[in-house]
Design a binder for these strands. Structure first.
Lengths: 212, 212
DNA sequence: GTCTATATCTCGATAGAC
DNA sequence: GTCTATCGAGATATAGAC
Protein backbone atom coordinates (compact mmCIF):
# COMPACT_ATOMS: atom_id res chain seq x y z
CA UNK A 1 0.00 0.00 0.00
CA UNK A 2 1.14 3.54 -0.63
CA UNK A 3 2.29 5.52 2.40
CA UNK A 4 -0.14 8.11 3.80
CA UNK A 5 1.19 10.76 1.46
CA UNK A 6 -0.48 13.95 2.60
CA UNK A 7 -0.03 15.41 -0.86
CA UNK A 8 -1.85 12.71 -2.82
CA UNK A 9 -5.30 14.29 -2.60
CA UNK A 10 -4.19 17.88 -3.02
CA UNK A 11 -5.66 20.28 -5.51
CA UNK A 12 -3.41 22.25 -7.81
CA UNK A 13 -3.54 25.30 -5.55
CA UNK A 14 -2.85 23.31 -2.41
CA UNK A 15 0.15 21.75 -4.06
CA UNK A 16 1.51 25.14 -5.09
CA UNK A 17 1.23 26.34 -1.51
CA UNK A 18 2.69 23.14 -0.10
CA UNK A 19 5.74 23.23 -2.33
CA UNK A 20 6.35 26.91 -1.66
CA UNK A 21 6.01 26.35 2.09
CA UNK A 22 8.43 23.44 2.02
CA UNK A 23 10.93 25.59 0.20
CA UNK A 24 10.67 28.61 2.48
CA UNK A 25 10.60 26.61 5.72
CA UNK A 26 13.64 24.70 4.51
CA UNK A 27 15.66 27.89 4.00
CA UNK A 28 14.45 30.08 6.85
CA UNK A 29 13.41 27.56 9.49
CA UNK A 30 10.01 27.12 11.08
CA UNK A 31 10.20 30.41 12.95
CA UNK A 32 12.18 32.42 10.42
CA UNK A 33 9.82 31.69 7.55
CA UNK A 34 7.27 34.40 6.74
CA UNK A 35 3.79 33.61 5.51
CA UNK A 36 4.18 36.48 3.04
CA UNK A 37 7.30 34.85 1.58
CA UNK A 38 5.43 31.58 1.17
CA UNK A 39 2.53 33.36 -0.51
CA UNK A 40 4.92 35.11 -2.88
CA UNK A 41 6.72 31.87 -3.72
CA UNK A 42 3.37 30.19 -4.38
CA UNK A 43 2.32 33.18 -6.47
CA UNK A 44 -0.87 33.44 -4.49
CA UNK A 45 -2.65 35.77 -2.09
CA UNK A 46 -1.62 35.62 1.55
CA UNK A 47 -5.19 35.07 2.73
CA UNK A 48 -5.36 31.89 0.69
CA UNK A 49 -2.74 30.29 2.89
CA UNK A 50 -5.12 30.53 5.83
CA UNK A 51 -8.04 29.36 3.72
CA UNK A 52 -6.37 26.10 2.72
CA UNK A 53 -4.21 25.51 5.79
CA UNK A 54 -5.53 26.96 9.00
CA UNK A 55 -2.40 28.64 10.28
CA UNK A 56 1.39 28.62 10.15
CA UNK A 57 1.75 25.81 12.69
CA UNK A 58 -0.63 23.56 10.75
CA UNK A 59 1.12 24.28 7.49
CA UNK A 60 4.50 23.50 8.99
CA UNK A 61 3.28 20.28 10.55
CA UNK A 62 1.82 19.14 7.24
CA UNK A 63 5.07 19.89 5.44
CA UNK A 64 7.24 18.26 8.08
CA UNK A 65 5.14 15.10 8.23
CA UNK A 66 5.55 14.69 4.50
CA UNK A 67 9.28 15.29 4.78
CA UNK A 68 9.70 12.76 7.57
CA UNK A 69 7.84 10.11 5.56
CA UNK A 70 9.98 10.77 2.52
CA UNK A 71 13.08 10.22 4.62
CA UNK A 72 11.77 7.07 6.22
CA UNK A 73 11.01 5.63 2.80
CA UNK A 74 14.26 6.74 1.17
CA UNK A 75 16.36 3.97 2.67
CA UNK A 76 14.19 1.12 1.50
CA UNK A 77 13.81 2.80 -1.87
CA UNK A 78 17.57 3.17 -2.34
CA UNK A 79 18.51 -0.29 -1.08
CA UNK A 80 18.09 -2.94 -3.76
CA UNK A 81 19.32 -6.46 -3.36
CA UNK A 82 22.30 -7.23 -5.57
CA UNK A 83 24.53 -10.29 -5.98
CA UNK A 84 27.55 -8.78 -4.23
CA UNK A 85 27.92 -6.32 -1.41
CA UNK A 86 29.95 -4.06 -3.70
CA UNK A 87 27.04 -3.76 -6.10
CA UNK A 88 24.56 -3.24 -3.29
CA UNK A 89 26.72 -0.42 -1.95
CA UNK A 90 27.12 1.18 -5.36
CA UNK A 91 23.38 1.11 -6.01
CA UNK A 92 22.61 2.50 -2.57
CA UNK A 93 25.02 5.42 -2.91
CA UNK A 94 23.68 6.29 -6.36
CA UNK A 95 20.10 5.97 -5.17
CA UNK A 96 20.50 7.90 -1.96
CA UNK A 97 22.43 10.77 -3.54
CA UNK A 98 19.73 10.98 -6.22
CA UNK A 99 17.05 10.98 -3.55
CA UNK A 100 18.65 13.88 -1.72
CA UNK A 101 19.18 15.80 -4.95
CA UNK A 102 15.52 15.36 -5.89
CA UNK A 103 14.40 16.31 -2.40
CA UNK A 104 16.77 19.08 -1.42
CA UNK A 105 14.08 21.08 0.34
CA UNK A 106 13.05 18.06 2.40
CA UNK A 107 16.65 17.47 3.35
CA UNK A 108 17.12 21.09 4.41
CA UNK A 109 13.94 21.00 6.46
CA UNK A 110 15.10 17.84 8.20
CA UNK A 111 18.40 19.52 9.07
CA UNK A 112 16.59 22.64 10.28
CA UNK A 113 14.46 20.53 12.61
CA UNK A 114 17.57 18.83 13.96
CA UNK A 115 19.33 22.15 14.53
CA UNK A 116 16.30 23.49 16.37
CA UNK A 117 16.37 20.57 18.78
CA UNK A 118 14.39 17.93 16.92
CA UNK A 119 11.33 17.96 19.17
CA UNK A 120 9.03 16.97 16.31
CA UNK A 121 11.38 14.22 15.15
CA UNK A 122 10.70 11.77 17.94
CA UNK A 123 6.93 12.01 17.82
CA UNK A 124 6.95 11.79 14.02
CA UNK A 125 9.22 8.73 14.06
CA UNK A 126 6.95 7.06 16.57
CA UNK A 127 3.83 7.84 14.57
CA UNK A 128 5.38 6.43 11.39
CA UNK A 129 6.72 3.36 13.17
CA UNK A 130 3.32 2.61 14.71
CA UNK A 131 1.64 2.80 11.33
CA UNK A 132 3.92 0.11 9.91
CA UNK A 133 6.79 2.06 8.36
CA UNK A 134 9.80 0.55 10.06
CA UNK A 135 12.77 2.78 10.74
CA UNK A 136 15.65 2.19 8.37
CA UNK A 137 17.33 -0.62 10.24
CA UNK A 138 17.43 -2.40 6.91
CA UNK A 139 20.71 -0.86 5.77
CA UNK A 140 22.26 -1.61 9.14
CA UNK A 141 21.18 -5.24 8.76
CA UNK A 142 22.68 -5.42 5.31
CA UNK A 143 26.04 -4.30 6.64
CA UNK A 144 25.83 -6.63 9.62
CA UNK A 145 25.08 -9.55 7.31
CA UNK A 146 28.01 -8.68 5.07
CA UNK A 147 30.29 -8.63 8.09
CA UNK A 148 28.91 -11.99 9.20
CA UNK A 149 29.46 -13.47 5.76
CA UNK A 150 33.03 -12.19 5.70
CA UNK A 151 32.30 -10.03 2.67
CA UNK A 152 33.62 -6.97 4.47
CA UNK A 153 35.85 -6.20 7.44
CA UNK A 154 34.36 -6.34 10.95
CA UNK A 155 33.07 -2.79 11.21
CA UNK A 156 30.38 -1.29 13.42
CA UNK A 157 27.21 -1.29 11.28
CA UNK A 158 25.61 1.72 12.97
CA UNK A 159 28.67 3.92 12.57
CA UNK A 160 29.19 2.73 9.03
CA UNK A 161 25.65 3.60 8.01
CA UNK A 162 26.02 7.00 9.63
CA UNK A 163 29.22 7.57 7.66
CA UNK A 164 27.57 6.64 4.39
CA UNK A 165 24.62 8.93 5.06
CA UNK A 166 26.93 11.77 6.12
CA UNK A 167 29.01 11.66 2.98
CA UNK A 168 26.01 11.33 0.67
CA UNK A 169 24.13 14.17 2.33
CA UNK A 170 26.39 16.77 3.88
CA UNK A 171 27.80 18.21 0.67
CA UNK A 172 24.26 19.25 -0.23
CA UNK A 173 23.88 20.96 3.15
CA UNK A 174 27.13 22.82 2.66
CA UNK A 175 26.66 23.44 -1.05
CA UNK A 176 27.45 27.19 -0.85
CA UNK A 177 30.69 26.49 1.03
CA UNK A 178 31.64 23.66 -1.30
CA UNK A 179 31.11 25.87 -4.32
CA UNK A 180 33.29 28.60 -2.86
CA UNK A 181 36.14 26.27 -1.95
CA UNK A 182 35.96 24.14 -5.08
CA UNK A 183 35.28 26.16 -8.27
CA UNK A 184 34.44 23.16 -10.48
CA UNK A 185 31.46 22.48 -8.22
CA UNK A 186 30.28 26.01 -8.92
CA UNK A 187 30.68 25.72 -12.66
CA UNK A 188 28.88 22.41 -13.05
CA UNK A 189 27.15 21.16 -9.94
CA UNK A 190 25.54 18.19 -11.67
CA UNK A 191 28.90 16.91 -12.85
CA UNK A 192 30.28 17.38 -9.37
CA UNK A 193 27.47 15.29 -7.90
CA UNK A 194 28.13 12.49 -10.38
CA UNK A 195 31.86 12.59 -9.66
CA UNK A 196 31.08 12.46 -5.98
CA UNK A 197 29.11 9.23 -6.36
CA UNK A 198 32.19 7.60 -7.89
CA UNK A 199 34.47 8.95 -5.20
CA UNK A 200 32.19 7.82 -2.38
CA UNK A 201 31.86 4.30 -3.67
CA UNK A 202 35.61 4.08 -4.20
CA UNK A 203 36.43 5.40 -0.73
CA UNK A 204 33.85 3.43 1.23
CA UNK A 205 34.22 0.22 -0.71
CA UNK A 206 37.96 0.13 -0.06
CA UNK A 207 37.28 1.19 3.50
CA UNK A 208 35.15 -1.90 4.03
CA UNK A 209 36.73 -4.52 1.78
CA UNK A 210 38.69 -7.25 3.58
CA UNK A 211 42.46 -7.31 3.50
CA UNK A 212 44.13 -10.67 3.20
CA UNK B 1 50.05 37.30 15.18
CA UNK B 2 46.72 36.41 16.68
CA UNK B 3 43.74 36.48 14.35
CA UNK B 4 41.40 39.50 14.63
CA UNK B 5 39.32 37.76 17.26
CA UNK B 6 36.39 40.05 17.82
CA UNK B 7 35.93 38.66 21.30
CA UNK B 8 39.42 39.37 22.61
CA UNK B 9 38.70 42.87 23.86
CA UNK B 10 35.25 42.14 25.20
CA UNK B 11 34.06 43.02 28.66
CA UNK B 12 32.39 40.41 30.80
CA UNK B 13 28.93 41.66 29.85
CA UNK B 14 29.71 41.79 26.16
CA UNK B 15 30.95 38.25 26.29
CA UNK B 16 27.78 37.07 28.01
CA UNK B 17 25.71 38.67 25.30
CA UNK B 18 27.93 37.38 22.54
CA UNK B 19 27.82 33.78 23.73
CA UNK B 20 24.07 33.90 24.24
CA UNK B 21 23.56 35.38 20.78
CA UNK B 22 25.75 32.73 19.17
CA UNK B 23 23.70 30.06 20.87
CA UNK B 24 20.30 31.45 19.93
CA UNK B 25 21.23 32.34 16.35
CA UNK B 26 22.66 28.83 15.97
CA UNK B 27 19.39 27.19 16.99
CA UNK B 28 16.80 29.54 15.52
CA UNK B 29 18.59 31.08 12.56
CA UNK B 30 19.36 34.72 11.88
CA UNK B 31 15.71 35.58 11.29
CA UNK B 32 14.10 33.16 13.70
CA UNK B 33 16.16 34.32 16.69
CA UNK B 34 14.44 36.77 19.04
CA UNK B 35 16.33 39.51 20.80
CA UNK B 36 14.31 38.70 23.93
CA UNK B 37 15.52 35.09 23.81
CA UNK B 38 19.11 36.30 23.55
CA UNK B 39 18.59 38.68 26.46
CA UNK B 40 17.11 35.88 28.56
CA UNK B 41 19.96 33.49 27.69
CA UNK B 42 22.47 36.20 28.61
CA UNK B 43 20.54 36.86 31.81
CA UNK B 44 20.47 40.54 31.02
CA UNK B 45 18.03 43.30 30.13
CA UNK B 46 16.86 43.52 26.55
CA UNK B 47 17.86 47.17 26.25
CA UNK B 48 21.46 46.25 27.01
CA UNK B 49 21.69 44.34 23.77
CA UNK B 50 21.17 47.57 21.86
CA UNK B 51 23.54 49.45 24.12
CA UNK B 52 26.47 47.13 23.44
CA UNK B 53 25.63 46.05 19.90
CA UNK B 54 23.64 48.53 17.89
CA UNK B 55 20.97 46.23 16.46
CA UNK B 56 20.19 42.66 15.55
CA UNK B 57 21.98 42.80 12.21
CA UNK B 58 25.16 44.12 13.81
CA UNK B 59 25.04 41.50 16.52
CA UNK B 60 24.57 38.74 13.97
CA UNK B 61 27.39 39.99 11.80
CA UNK B 62 29.74 40.12 14.77
CA UNK B 63 28.83 36.58 15.78
CA UNK B 64 29.10 35.23 12.27
CA UNK B 65 32.46 36.83 11.61
CA UNK B 66 33.82 35.17 14.72
CA UNK B 67 32.34 31.84 13.66
CA UNK B 68 33.82 32.06 10.18
CA UNK B 69 37.27 32.81 11.60
CA UNK B 70 37.04 29.87 13.98
CA UNK B 71 36.25 27.61 11.08
CA UNK B 72 39.05 28.97 8.91
CA UNK B 73 41.52 28.37 11.72
CA UNK B 74 40.21 24.93 12.68
CA UNK B 75 41.91 23.12 9.84
CA UNK B 76 45.39 24.41 10.51
CA UNK B 77 44.84 23.84 14.22
CA UNK B 78 43.80 20.23 13.74
CA UNK B 79 46.45 19.34 11.17
CA UNK B 80 49.76 18.51 12.81
CA UNK B 81 52.68 17.08 10.91
CA UNK B 82 53.35 13.46 11.84
CA UNK B 83 55.83 10.87 10.56
CA UNK B 84 53.28 8.81 8.67
CA UNK B 85 50.07 9.70 6.86
CA UNK B 86 48.17 7.32 9.11
CA UNK B 87 49.23 9.27 12.18
CA UNK B 88 48.48 12.59 10.52
CA UNK B 89 45.00 11.36 9.65
CA UNK B 90 44.37 10.04 13.14
CA UNK B 91 45.44 13.31 14.75
CA UNK B 92 43.35 15.34 12.33
CA UNK B 93 40.19 13.33 12.94
CA UNK B 94 40.62 13.54 16.70
CA UNK B 95 41.39 17.24 16.54
CA UNK B 96 38.61 18.17 14.18
CA UNK B 97 35.93 16.20 16.02
CA UNK B 98 37.09 17.85 19.25
CA UNK B 99 36.95 21.25 17.59
CA UNK B 100 33.37 20.72 16.46
CA UNK B 101 32.36 19.39 19.86
CA UNK B 102 33.86 22.43 21.58
CA UNK B 103 32.26 24.78 19.08
CA UNK B 104 28.88 23.25 18.47
CA UNK B 105 27.12 26.59 18.33
CA UNK B 106 29.58 27.88 15.73
CA UNK B 107 29.06 24.75 13.68
CA UNK B 108 25.28 25.11 13.84
CA UNK B 109 25.50 28.75 12.83
CA UNK B 110 27.70 27.85 9.87
CA UNK B 111 25.16 25.24 8.76
CA UNK B 112 22.29 27.72 9.20
CA UNK B 113 24.07 30.20 6.98
CA UNK B 114 24.58 27.53 4.34
CA UNK B 115 20.93 26.47 4.47
CA UNK B 116 19.84 30.07 4.09
CA UNK B 117 21.88 30.42 0.91
CA UNK B 118 25.29 31.39 2.26
CA UNK B 119 25.29 34.99 1.06
CA UNK B 120 27.53 36.09 3.93
CA UNK B 121 29.92 33.17 3.40
CA UNK B 122 31.55 34.44 0.24
CA UNK B 123 32.21 37.94 1.44
CA UNK B 124 33.48 36.65 4.78
CA UNK B 125 35.82 34.18 3.10
CA UNK B 126 37.17 36.90 0.88
CA UNK B 127 37.72 39.24 3.81
CA UNK B 128 39.58 36.58 5.78
CA UNK B 129 41.64 35.53 2.78
CA UNK B 130 42.68 39.13 2.05
CA UNK B 131 43.82 39.61 5.63
CA UNK B 132 46.22 36.69 5.39
CA UNK B 133 44.23 33.73 6.67
CA UNK B 134 44.50 31.27 3.83
CA UNK B 135 41.56 29.01 3.15
CA UNK B 136 42.09 25.45 4.30
CA UNK B 137 43.84 24.18 1.22
CA UNK B 138 46.42 22.76 3.59
CA UNK B 139 44.59 19.48 4.22
CA UNK B 140 44.00 19.08 0.51
CA UNK B 141 47.72 19.52 -0.06
CA UNK B 142 48.55 16.94 2.57
CA UNK B 143 46.38 14.39 0.80
CA UNK B 144 47.77 15.30 -2.59
CA UNK B 145 51.32 14.88 -1.28
CA UNK B 146 50.49 11.50 0.21
CA UNK B 147 49.09 10.37 -3.13
CA UNK B 148 52.21 11.63 -4.88
CA UNK B 149 54.43 9.79 -2.42
CA UNK B 150 52.47 6.59 -2.92
CA UNK B 151 51.46 6.51 0.73
CA UNK B 152 47.79 6.27 -0.24
CA UNK B 153 45.77 5.26 -3.28
CA UNK B 154 45.25 7.81 -6.08
CA UNK B 155 42.14 9.53 -4.74
CA UNK B 156 40.72 12.96 -5.49
CA UNK B 157 42.02 15.21 -2.67
CA UNK B 158 39.08 17.64 -2.75
CA UNK B 159 36.46 14.93 -2.50
CA UNK B 160 38.44 13.10 0.14
CA UNK B 161 38.70 16.17 2.35
CA UNK B 162 34.99 16.78 1.91
CA UNK B 163 34.31 13.21 2.99
CA UNK B 164 36.45 13.54 6.09
CA UNK B 165 34.78 16.80 7.07
CA UNK B 166 31.32 15.34 6.41
CA UNK B 167 31.83 12.33 8.62
CA UNK B 168 33.45 14.33 11.43
CA UNK B 169 30.75 16.98 11.41
CA UNK B 170 27.38 15.69 10.26
CA UNK B 171 26.61 13.49 13.24
CA UNK B 172 26.68 16.62 15.39
CA UNK B 173 24.22 18.32 13.02
CA UNK B 174 21.89 15.34 13.17
CA UNK B 175 22.46 14.60 16.85
CA UNK B 176 18.73 14.37 17.70
CA UNK B 177 18.13 11.90 14.87
CA UNK B 178 21.23 9.89 15.75
CA UNK B 179 20.12 9.64 19.35
CA UNK B 180 16.68 8.41 18.34
CA UNK B 181 17.96 5.77 15.94
CA UNK B 182 20.88 4.65 18.11
CA UNK B 183 20.01 4.45 21.84
CA UNK B 184 23.63 4.14 23.08
CA UNK B 185 24.28 7.62 21.64
CA UNK B 186 21.42 8.88 23.76
CA UNK B 187 22.66 7.24 26.94
CA UNK B 188 26.26 8.39 26.67
CA UNK B 189 26.95 10.90 23.94
CA UNK B 190 30.56 11.49 24.97
CA UNK B 191 31.34 7.79 24.67
CA UNK B 192 29.63 7.72 21.30
CA UNK B 193 31.80 10.59 20.07
CA UNK B 194 34.96 8.80 21.17
CA UNK B 195 33.85 5.56 19.53
CA UNK B 196 33.11 7.51 16.38
CA UNK B 197 36.67 8.83 16.19
CA UNK B 198 37.94 5.24 16.18
CA UNK B 199 35.43 4.17 13.56
CA UNK B 200 36.20 7.11 11.29
CA UNK B 201 39.92 6.55 11.36
CA UNK B 202 39.46 2.85 10.72
CA UNK B 203 37.08 3.38 7.80
CA UNK B 204 38.93 6.21 6.10
CA UNK B 205 42.40 4.84 6.66
CA UNK B 206 41.46 1.55 5.02
CA UNK B 207 39.64 3.49 2.34
CA UNK B 208 42.85 5.30 1.44
CA UNK B 209 45.58 2.74 2.14
CA UNK B 210 47.18 1.19 -0.95
CA UNK B 211 46.42 -2.38 -1.96
CA UNK B 212 49.19 -4.46 -3.34
C1' DG C 1 25.69 51.25 32.73
C1' DT C 2 21.11 49.63 33.86
C1' DC C 3 16.16 49.43 33.67
C1' DT C 4 11.12 50.80 32.55
C1' DA C 5 8.16 52.45 29.47
C1' DT C 6 6.94 53.20 25.04
C1' DA C 7 7.20 54.18 20.13
C1' DT C 8 7.38 51.83 15.67
C1' DC C 9 7.00 48.29 12.74
C1' DT C 10 6.42 43.56 11.07
C1' DC C 11 3.74 39.65 10.73
C1' DG C 12 0.12 36.24 11.46
C1' DA C 13 -4.64 36.01 11.21
C1' DT C 14 -9.54 37.45 10.20
C1' DA C 15 -13.57 40.05 8.42
C1' DG C 16 -16.17 40.95 4.77
C1' DA C 17 -16.92 42.47 -0.18
C1' DC C 18 -17.08 40.23 -4.54
C1' DG D 1 -12.60 30.60 -3.97
C1' DT D 2 -10.24 35.01 -4.25
C1' DC D 3 -8.86 39.56 -2.80
C1' DT D 4 -8.46 44.06 0.08
C1' DA D 5 -8.34 46.07 4.26
C1' DT D 6 -7.38 45.83 8.82
C1' DC D 7 -6.88 44.21 13.57
C1' DG D 8 -3.93 42.85 17.18
C1' DA D 9 0.08 40.28 18.96
C1' DG D 10 4.71 40.30 19.17
C1' DA D 11 9.20 41.94 17.91
C1' DT D 12 12.88 45.57 17.23
C1' DA D 13 14.52 49.65 18.73
C1' DT D 14 14.68 54.09 21.45
C1' DA D 15 13.76 57.63 25.06
C1' DG D 16 14.65 58.99 29.30
C1' DA D 17 14.76 58.29 34.42
C1' DC D 18 17.96 56.59 37.72
Amino acid sequence: MPPPDSRSDYSETERQIFDAALDVFAREGRRGARMQAIADAADINKAMLHYYFRDKATLYEEVFTYTACQFMASFDASLKEAPTFAETLRVFIDGYVDFVRSNEACMRLMVQENLAGGTLLGQQMRKATDSGDAPPTILVDTIADAVQAGEIRPVDPDHTVLSVISTCLYFFVAQPTVQIMHPPAEEDWEAFVEARKDHLFDLIYHGLAPRE
